[in-house]
Simulated assay, not measured.
Amino acid sequence: MPKFSKKQWITDYLAALSKMAVGDTLSVFLHPQIEQVEFPNALTKQKTTRDLAAMLQGAEAGRKVLQGQSFEIVNYMEDDQNGALAEVIWTGKLAVPIGSLQPGDEMKAHFAWVFEFKEQKIFRQRNYDCFEPF
Rank of each mutant, 00 (worst) to 15 (best):
K3E: 12
F4R: 11
K7P: 07
W9E: 12
W9G: 00
I10R: 02
T11K: 15
D12N: 13
Y13I: 00
Y13H: 10
Y13T: 02
L14C: 15
L14D: 10
L14A: 07
A15I: 00
A15F: 02
A16K: 06
A16Y: 04
L17N: 01
L17K: 07
L17W: 02
A21N: 04
A21S: 05
A21D: 00
V22Q: 15
D24Q: 12
D24G: 07
D24T: 08
T25L: 00
T25E: 03
L26Y: 07
S27Q: 02
V28M: 13
V28S: 11
F29P: 09
F29M: 02
F29R: 14
L30V: 08
H31R: 08
H31W: 03
Q33S: 09
E35F: 05
E35P: 15
Q36K: 13
Q36I: 04
V37Y: 02
E38N: 08
E38C: 11
P40W: 07
N41V: 06
A42R: 09
L43M: 09
L43K: 08
K45C: 00
K45H: 13
Q46V: 15
K47T: 10
T48S: 07
T49L: 14
R50S: 08
R50Q: 14
R50E: 08
R50H: 07
D51M: 05
L52T: 07
A54H: 00
A54M: 11
A54W: 02
M55F: 01
G62H: 00
R63W: 03
R63F: 01
K64I: 06
L66N: 13
L66A: 06
Q67A: 05
Q67W: 03
G68I: 04
G68Y: 04
F71C: 09
E72P: 09
I73C: 14
Y76N: 02
Y76D: 05
M77W: 10
M77F: 10
E78T: 01
D80K: 14
Q81K: 14
A84I: 03
A84H: 00
A84V: 03
L85P: 03
L85I: 11
A86F: 04
E87C: 07
E87F: 13
E87I: 10
V88F: 14
V88P: 06
V88Q: 13
V88N: 12
V88L: 15
V88G: 08
W90R: 09
W90V: 05
T91A: 13
K93W: 02
K93R: 14
K93N: 04
L94E: 02
A95L: 10
V96P: 08
G99Q: 01
G99I: 03
S100C: 00
S100H: 05
S100P: 07
L101R: 06
L101P: 06
Q102R: 14
Q102M: 13
P103Y: 06
G104S: 01
D105K: 09
D105R: 08
M107K: 01
K108T: 01
K108N: 08
A109V: 04
A109P: 06
H110F: 09
F111E: 03
F111G: 11
A112L: 15
V114A: 10
E116K: 14
E116Y: 11
F117N: 04
F117W: 10
F117K: 07
K118P: 10
K118S: 08
E119Q: 15
E119K: 14
Q120S: 12
K121W: 12
F123I: 03
R124S: 06
Q125H: 08
R126I: 12
N127S: 07
Y128G: 01
D129A: 15
D129G: 11
F131V: 07
E132A: 04
P133N: 09
